[in-house]
Structures are given as C-alpha cells and as structure tokens.
C-alpha cells in the first residue's frame, strides 16, 4: 500500500506537478486569449478606442502581468513539447523526469532574458 510520505504513482512528483501546471497555465492563457482578441477588435471601432485600451497594457501593473503571461506561455509551450516527446519518442517515457527539469531550465533562461527586457521597456533604461 502506497503511503503519502513515500509517494504514490504521482503524488508530489515531476509527472503530477507538470500536469497540474500545464492545466493551470492553459486555462489562464485561454482566458487571456479571449480578452486579447476582444481588445484587438477595437481597431475596428476607432484608433482612439484601441489606443486607450492598449495604453493600459503599458502601465507598470500590466507590465508585471505580461511577465506572468510570458511565464505561463513559456512553461505551457516547453512542457507541451515534453508531452509530445513522452508520447512519440521511444525513450520519452523513461526520461520524463529529466525532460521536466529540462523544461524548467529552458523556462528559466527565457524568464531571465525577458524580465529585465520588459522592465527596461516599462521603466526606461
């Protein structure tokens, strides 16, 4: 009988947490996408209407939100590629934990590059 302390098939390990994070980021990205298509649709209303709404994307608060958005997208993208490798590559399932840490490393590189860039754009420098 598996115990919580020793871990069951999934509990607390890379396979489960990557799955949870994939769902959470996926749902978040989907709702942003609905909003993003609607705000972009304002280009059909008037230049003023579009500029007013896109102006809110340039505020410090939303700039932090864009960092969260890029973080969610980058994780979902790289973990999605990991899922594909697990499904289609012969050695994928055996290496799924290593692939997870590979996802985290590539994700960290993207975030370390993007965060200062975004802060420079937002606060100048």
């Amino acid at each position: 009988m598996a115990k919580a302390s020793t871990g069951t098939l999934y509990r607390g390990n890379e396979g489960m947490w990557s799955w949870v994070a994939h769902r959470v980021t996926g749902v978040g990205i989907f709702f942003f996408l609905l909003v993003h298509v609607l705000d972009t649709a304002l280009v059909r209303v008037s230049p003023e209407a579009y500029n007013a709404v896109i102006g809110t994307y340039k505020t410090p608060f939303m700039a932090i939100g864009e960092i969260a958005l890029v973080a969610a997208i980058a994780f979902h993208a790289f973990n999605g590629l990991r899922v594909i490798l697990v499904d289609f590559s012969k050695s994928g399932p055996k290496n799924q934990k290593k692939l997870f840490w590979g996802v985290i490393i590539v994700w960290l590189i993207i975030m370390i590059a993007f965060i200062p860039r975004q802060l420079m754009h937002t606060f100048g420098g």
Binding site: P47, Y50, Y57, K58, H121
Partner: peptide, 24 residues
C-alpha cells in the same frame, strides 16, 4: 506565439511601441 511575442514584446520598444499605427 513565440514569433508574436518577439515582435510585440521584445523587439524595439516592446509593448510601449504598440498602438493603432503599429497594428496597421
């Protein structure tokens, strides 16, 4: 999406450059 993010958030002035003229 990475192409979209690169052009709209990374290149040039990033999100600060986006307005009606940018989309046009």
């Amino acid at each position: 999406i990475f192409g979209h993010l690169f052009v709209n958030l990374w290149a040039g002035e990033g999100v600060q450059a986006i307005d009606f003229g940018f989309v046009a």
